[in-house]
Each structure stands twice: as structure tokens, then as C-alpha cells.
Write a protein that binds this DNA or RNA. Structure first.
Lengths: 319, 319
DNA sequence: GGTGTACTTGAAAGATATTTTCACCGCCTG
DNA sequence: CAGGCGGTGAAAATATCTTTCAAGTACACC
């Protein structure tokens, strides 16, 4: 148990030495995990090896069936070894197979009671427009539910606390995530926080140098391996700022410089629904949570700003 | 020794044999057992011994808690022995404690999912962070469902057709809607359309003058009365471009200059959840639909671009 | 194209949890 | 009060889960 995380942490430290403290950047920050297992499998699948993927697939595909199997049984079913099954269970956030199995049983029971009908097909080139609407809406709803279910509220709370108390907040993101970064900065500005979004990597790094303890840096990247975003976060981290990563891949490079990691869940991707599109929804939810959390904690300052913007809008609406 | 054990074995065989024979051969005709555990405990309680009753009680009283315990743990909790726990599990109709535990986990999960209907309240200042997440996710999901349900597919189809055939697409939006506008332009660009988002009103108008029939102008504004967005749309309209409005208010000023109006649905607003925040989700869904629609209709051109961006991402993911 | 390195993987040893066995204990009965 | 009988838990036996380790594999770097 601790051996595993130690080993894993050691590997991290070996490959990515500079980290201030290994502890904050835990590879598996999630608690046991509730019900969003399919989502978790999707999220973690890319960072899995082939055999682990086979196990994860089996588990996600037939929770009830797998719950009835012992490690050995599941290993045989998937044509792998017990060790691999246990490794997969670990990766999914459980202490071992036993606990995964328990969670599986729970999941099976839930599915049993609440049959989900679902429009789970991929979007195809000749779908009529009404079907496109239905599928997109369904997928985005799914992404929201999964992200909400698997969001680590402890990490979220910590990030919010740091931001609320922070002197200055910098947000990094490029391309699609850049818009999310801007969204966050925009809203924080409106409630009187000093926040800025950087999508120019050079300016971002230049600014990150200015950060110091008490400041907060937030990196938003779906893949978790966008160099243009990691670099400023690393600089901020090394200058002692509190760092937050919003990513779809919990173990990705960006998390090495993040004090707090917030994981977004990813929906199925397909040709007509690229990753950038599905990740955005989850990122925005996380960003909204951060915003509301900060607004709560700085209510005295935030309230007037909020009602002012509300009034301004109401006024505009008159016609 | 051998005599003694033989004798003893004989005695056992005489007295215990029936019990042992019964165990493997399903004491309860029912399969493992669904969820009516509490009832079963009550029914079987009279035929239980004192220690078994203690175990049964603990199990019925706190399924979730007991599911987390090992045989030894449960034995200690109830002040009994492992053997008694196993015996109880058998009596309840399971092959052993392991299976009882699995059933317990399922039961706990069901109970858990049963209680979560009341997320409809407004977000308040002192909501714990977990509640904020739940409420935000719930509201956004609601917005998506509403928007999808009320979206006019005829209008959407017409807008898509115009955009797919259009020579050039301009998108207008300011503040929060500005990010949505950028999102749309970004994605259209990526599949080879000529698209541009304007958030500077002056530049927007300047550019709108260039538009002519065959071009498309899209205005995104929640209120529908943002002058900075209406103005360029009007100019585009007057120059003969096809105009599309994405707004939360179907009758608002912006629709006067729109050939096609796409209505987004808005969730309840509250102080901590301003309009800008809830409208964004619906706007993005509409924008995604526009994008996918256009991608479908220009598939020959879009496909290479889509798979290229997919590959680029996949490559990035590798390590 | 060869070589070294890091990562995967499963077999088997090791640790835990579960099940079974068995002897003891207390209670009731004759 | 002796004998038997069911209830009970300690401990052995077994099943299951976890960890270790060595071999295989793919990749990156000369």
C-alpha cells in the first residue's frame, strides 16, 4: 500500500526531480471513488498499459460479472495475471482488488436499480441534425455528471482556499483550454480578485517569475502535457506560488508542479467530437466551482460586485 | 489419538452431518439475495443464536459500515468470533462472508444513490464545497437538457447550411459570450473554414462592412440586447450576409437582424450564479451543434483536419 | 543497425482474509 | 450431579489477495 505509492513517488521523483515536495503531487489523489467508474476508466485509459486496459475494459463493461470473480478469475478472463489486475485496481484508485470488487458490486447494484437507456452511439457523418443535438447534449451531460462525481473536493477546497487568500492569481491555458482560462480570469476579476489569463507562453513565463508565496497559479490543460502551459506553472511552482492543475490526466507531467490537482472527466471521443470539445465542458465546471468557492469565501468583497453586474444586466434587459 | 479422533469424527458425523449437508445445498431457495436484507434478518432472527443475532443486527443496521470490515473486524465489532460471522452469513443465504460483504456493498450503494434529490436549491454562501459541485453540475445539466429540447432544428439546419456554404464566417460576442464566439471560430478554423471572432466592437463593425451575400455573420449574446454585438450584425444583415443570432431571449432586439435565431435556455440565476455563467453552457452546446453540423456537410475537407488534430494530440499523449 | 535503458508482464513467493475444524463451556435434563 | 447437547471461539487449513522478482519487449539513443 504505502510501498506502492512510495515506489510510484520515487519513480516520479527520479524522472522529474525538481519537485519541491513529492507529497503534494500524489499520483492518485482520489479517495476510494464513488460510482463514476466508467468515466474513470476512460480518463485513465491512456495512461494504462495494454493488459491493464483489457482489465479496465472488462471491469467497466460488466461490473456485475466482474464483481463475482476473484483476482485469479478476472486475470484468466482477461488473459492477464493477478498482478496486472491488482495494478489496474490501484490505478483506478483503490487500495487493492478487494476494494475494487466491493465498488463493483455497488455499481452493479446501482445499475440494476436505475437502468440507463442512453443514446450512446457515436456521432456519424450522416446523422440528422436533431440527432446531433441529442447526442451532443447527452455526452456533455454525461461529462458533467462524471466530472462532478469524481472531483476531489478536498483538493478543490484547498485550491479555493489558496485562491481566496491569494494576492494574485495567474491562469495558464492555450487553444481550447485558453478560453477556459480566460473565463476563469474574467469572472474572478469581476469579484475583485487580481486575476489574469495568459495564453501567450512567453508572457506567461515572464509573469510567472513575478509570483511568490501567497500567489496562485492555475494551469488548464486537458492532456496535461502541453509544454506551453507546464512551463509557466513550473516557474510559478519554483517561485513558491501555490499551484493548481486542471487536467484530464491525473498522472500527467503537469501534475508534478501542482500542489492541487483537479481532474476533469473525459467523454468518449470520436472523429466528429474531438477531445478538445468534450474536455471543455468538464473544465468549465471545475472553473465554475473554483469561482463560486472563491466568491463564497470573499463574500463581503464579492457581493457588491456580483449584484452590480446583475443590475447592469437587468438594466440592459429592459427592452 | 486415532481412536479418539475417529470416535469424535463419528459423533460429529452423527450430530452435525445434516447441517453440513444442508449448507452446500442452498439452505435458502432464493438466490444470493437482493436488497431485502433487513427483512430477512427480522425473519430469521428467531432461529438465530444470541451471537448470531448481534452480527445480523450490526449488518442490517449499518450495511455500508460493515461492508468495509473483514470477518475479523466484524467479529470484533460484535464481540464474537469469525466462525460466528460466517455462520450468520450462511444463515442469511450466502455461501460465505465474502458474498455477504459484496451484497452489503451493493446495498450501501443503492441506499447512497437513493438520497440525493434535493440539489435544486440555490447556492448559498455557506454551502460546503461538495454541495457547490453538486448544485453547479445539476444546474448545468439542466441547462443542457432544456436547451437541447427547445432548440429549433429547422433554424439550426438552415444556419448550418449557410455556414457550410459560406465564403467567410464572422462571429460576434463580448465578455462571456466573447469566449463562446472565439470557441466557435477556433473550431471552424481548424476544419478549414474561414472564420473569425470579433470582440472589439469597432473592428467588428469595420469587418462587417466587408461582408456580402454568401457570407455568414453569427451574433452571440445572452441578453439579446448587447449593442456592441447587435451593431455589427445589423451591418452584416444590411450588406446581404446571412445572419444568425444565438440568444437566450427569442424576442430581443438582436433577432431583428437575424435570418436564423437559435435560442438557448437559461437556468435559474442567483447571486452566486450570475446569468453569464449559466448562459454559457447553453451557448456552447449550440455552438458545438453548429460546428458538428458544418463538419458533417464539409466532411471531405474537414476529415483530414480532424484526424490531423487528433493525431497531434495522441502523439502528445504518449508519455 | 546495435546497444542500453526503461517499461511491461506473469510466475511464484509472501501476506491476509476466509473457512473449517475441533475442543471447551455452560445449560438443561434425566 | 452426570451426561448430553448446542453454542462458541481459538486455531489450523484453505482460499484469496499482494508483492517481489526475473525475464521479455519496445523504445530511444547513439
Amino acid at each position: 500500500m504505502s510501498a506502492a505509492s512510495q515506489q510510484s513517488a520515487a519513480r516520479q521523483a527520479a524522472t522529474r526531480a525538481p519537485a519541491r515536495a513529492v507529497a503534494p503531487a500524489r499520483p492518485a489523489p482520489a479517495p476510494p471513488a464513488p460510482a463514476a467508474l466508467a468515466a474513470k476508466v476512460r480518463t485513465l485509459a491512456p495512461s494504462m498499459t495494454r493488459s491493464m486496459q483489457r482489465v479496465a475494459e472488462a471491469v467497466a463493461g460488466d461490473p456485475a460479472g466482474c464483481a463475482a470473480l476473484t483476482v485469479t478469475g478476472l486475470a484468466q478472463l482477461t488473459g492477464t495475471s493477478e498482478a496486472t489486475v491488482v495494478r489496474t485496481a490501484r490505478l483506478l484508485g483503490y487500495p487493492g482488488y478487494r476494494d475494487l470488487r466491493l465498488a463493483l458490486a455497488g455499481l452493479a447494484a446501482q445499475q440494476e436499480s436505475g437502468r440507463a437507456p442512453s443514446v450512446t452511439a457515436d456521432i456519424s457523418v450522416d446523422d440528422p441534425i436533431a440527432e446531433v443535438v441529442a447526442k451532443l447534449a447527452h455526452d456533455e451531460r454525461q461529462t458533467l455528471a462524471d466530472t462532478a462525481a469524481s472531483l476531489d473536493t478536498a483538493q478543490l477546497g484547498a485550491a479555493v482556499a489558496a485562491m481566496a487568500a491569494g494576492r494574485r492569481i495567474d491562469v495558464y491555458g492555450v487553444a481550447a483550454s485558453g478560453l477556459v482560462a480566460q473565463d476563469l480570469a474574467q469572472k474572478l476579476l469581476r469579484i475583485g480578485m487580481v486575476a489574469h489569463a495568459h495564453s501567450d507562453p512567453h508572457l506567461a513565463v515572464t509573469n510567472a517569475v513575478q509570483l511568490r508565496p501567497g500567489d496562485v497559479a492555475v494551469a488548464i490543460t486537458h492532456s496535461g502535457s502541453t509544454g506551453d502551459v507546464i512551463e509557466p506553472l513550473r516557474v510559478a511552482f519554483e517561485h513558491g506560488a501555490t499551484t493548481v492543475a486542471v487536467t484530464g490526466r491525473p498522472g500527467s507531467p503537469v501534475t508534478q508542479y501542482a500542489d492541487h490537482v483537479l481532474t476533469t472527466s473525459t467523454a468518449r471521443e470520436s472523429e466528429l467530437r474531438p477531445a478538445a470539445m468534450s474536455s471543455r465542458t468538464g473544465q468549465l465546471l471545475v472553473v465554475d466551482c473554483l469561482f463560486v468557492g472563491v466568491a463564497q469565501r470573499t463574500y463581503d468583497r464579492a457581493a457588491p460586485a456580483l449584484s452590480a453586474s446583475y443590475e447592469a444586466l437587468a438594466h440592459r434587459h429592459r427592452r
